[in-house]
Design a protein around this nucleic acid. Structure first.
Length: 195
DNA sequence: GACCAGATTGTCT
DNA sequence: GACAATCTGGTCA
């Protein structure tokens, strides 16, 4: 079941937590979202939206529920979900997935058979799912990339128990606003990018 | 686990 | 020119 458009019309830190446990789908590949980070608008120095809209971050200032895909470090792409109220420049970075469907395809794309290495980082999951820059700005409600409410037996691994606990932590890989608690992940998941 | 170097290019100063 | 919401592959412990 595809999540409806109004799922995304909430505060971005709240959306980042609501996305945990959902299924990110592209073609025959999919994975459960186990780690996210919220990036706020023009008041968040770590956000691409900090200096206002431009060519690269235009999608962030568009409609919630769309894909913002950016290029970084000269070689990697990362995937975000635009959130918040309309046109405020907020998004959720998807940092890690637990692989579910199309694992063989992911293994070929990632050139490794090790499950933990398929989607345990924002650029890794983009490569594993075959997401490309052409998907920037597409709708997650009726576009090629979708987010589903997991049906049936798709439960994220927690390592030990079966309760779903969310850990809140500082964001990773940034040099501004380093202490804000805007990173969220499923406690005990073996598939997060880092503990 | 920790730390480090190197890859490589769009964007901004 | 500097730097980037990263990854890989190396060292050391």
């Amino acid at each position: 079941v595809i999540l409806p458009a109004d799922f995304y019309q909430v505060d971005t830190p709240e959306l980042a937590q609501k996305l945990l446990g959902k299924l990110l789908v592209h073609g025959q590949t999919s994975g459960i979202i186990v780690e996210t980070e919220a990036y706020l608008g023009t008041r968040d120095p770590a956000s691409h939206a900090y200096r206002g809209p431009g060519k690269r971050n235009a999608v962030m200032f568009g409609h919630p529920g769309h894909a913002y895909i950016y290029f970084t470090y000269g070689m990697h792409y990362c995937f975000n979900v635009v959130g918040g109220p309309e046109e405020v420049g907020e998004a959720v970075l998807i940092r890690a997935l637990e692989p579910v469907d199309g694992i063989e395809v992911m293994q070929q794309r990632r050139k490794t058979d090790v499950l933990k290495l398929l989607c345990s980082g924002p650029a890794k999951l983009v490569q594993a799912l075959g997401i490309a820059k052409e998907h920037n700005g597409t709708s997650l409600v009726d576009g090629p990339i979708q987010i589903h409410e997991p049906s049936g037996s798709h439960h994220p691994s927690t390592g030990s128990g079966n309760k779903l606990e969310i850990v809140t932590a500082p964001r990773i890989g940034i040099s501004q606003a380093v202490n804000l608690p805007l990173r969220f992940y499923i406690k005990g998941s073996p598939f997060v990018s880092r503990i």
